[in-house]
Nucleic acid binder design. Sequence first.
DNA 1: ACCTGAACACCGTTCAAGT
DNA 2: ACCTGAACACCGTTCAAGT
Lengths: 223, 223
Amino acid sequence: MPRKRSTPNPRPRTGLTREQILSVALEVLDRDGLEALSMRRIATELGVGTMTVYSYFRDKDELLDGVIDAGAQQLGATVPDAPWKESLRALAFELHHELAQHSFIAQLRQRRPILSPGALRWTEAVLEVLHRAGFSADEAPQALRPLFLYTFAYTAFSPDEATDSARRASLAASVSLPPEQYPRIVQSAHALADSMTGETTFAYGLDRLLDGLEAQLKRQQED
Amino acid sequence: MPRKRSTPNPRPRTGLTREQILSVALEVLDRDGLEALSMRRIATELGVGTMTVYSYFRDKDELLDGVIDAGAQQLGATVPDAPWKESLRALAFELHHELAQHSFIAQLRQRRPILSPGALRWTEAVLEVLHRAGFSADEAPQALRPLFLYTFAYTAFSPDEATDSARRASLAASVSLPPEQYPRIVQSAHALADSMTGETTFAYGLDRLLDGLEAQLKRQQED
DNA sequence: ACCTGAACACCGTTCAAGT
DNA sequence: ACCTGAACACCGTTCAAGT
């Protein structure tokens, strides 16, 4: 007589899945940030022993890759059907909003390219728009790169929560500089503090970049 | 009879200075990277007890701020005397090369603006060039922001050492995608892998940004 | 195959004590 | 004021053992 199996899928004895672990990890990341996420914390939050997590993910890096991949699934799902500049603008804003919502992604991406299919959907969409705009298959990746970098940088290098305290700190630092050595900073102190955050600032740089890509396209068509 | 003082400056009993500590920290950072730098490691390398470092820096953050400030001293020391686009290009490349040499700076700057006088020298130089170009005191910081962000992003989000292995990984990921769903990535696979690193890639995005700023300037002059 | 606690080799920093 | 070792509260991961 065969050994009785109490569950249809006998493997996991805790009823855990990779998805459940990823979802708890995402919660911790969104709530308390990247530095608060530890394997011990995830396990505790799930009510299992620390090492149980290692049955589902080889190490912390693999788990973090999983979180990013899950978050990137929706990005670039549909290629906008608009003039190319507007379409690129929409795709950049889509990425921008995702990163603003899960700011740990920008910290995580550092020097560790994510090449999973989910993460490449956005890349495919941007390349498609660039192709329609008239960029060659060779040049399109070069045109994509600054859009990607600028959008990631905006989240990674802008002060996050307590925006106002960052603005005040910038203003205080600017006005305390010797005006003879730093005349332009002193003169632009307020505008400089304001330029650190906000949708308007993001849009300003993005639009300059798109104008620059347009100029490049026109230059080529004149030849 | 007064107590004999064996050194002119009796305060430090180990002969340590902040500068010495910063220099050891910089060595470790350049050699082994940000994650290898610990207070314990610095102390050991200096031949003192771990807690001795805390007599010179309040905590690790203050020490790291010190390293960045020291590295930024030379940046923007002279404002280039050339047409404004060339000058901005030179300043961006100056920052780019500094970051390439000390890539930990880009990791460190994350969400923690550095507002020391040394770190603001480059900002002052860029604002001065933007002023000469014709940007208003209000708009110049907005124009500066993408130059700063793009240059930082380039170091922060590009694979560093073992460039070739990153190129191969990208290529492998691209060609293994289903071509029906990812036609543009598959088509541009080689160019995409090449676009991740290299001076040419950095220059391409920078030049588009500068073209975009020029277009903005012309637009305003037409009004 | 999945789960576990103990152990190892690390962290930054507080504390109390030494000069 | 400067220097220190011990201790505290953490890490990620290996190991050996359990089911």
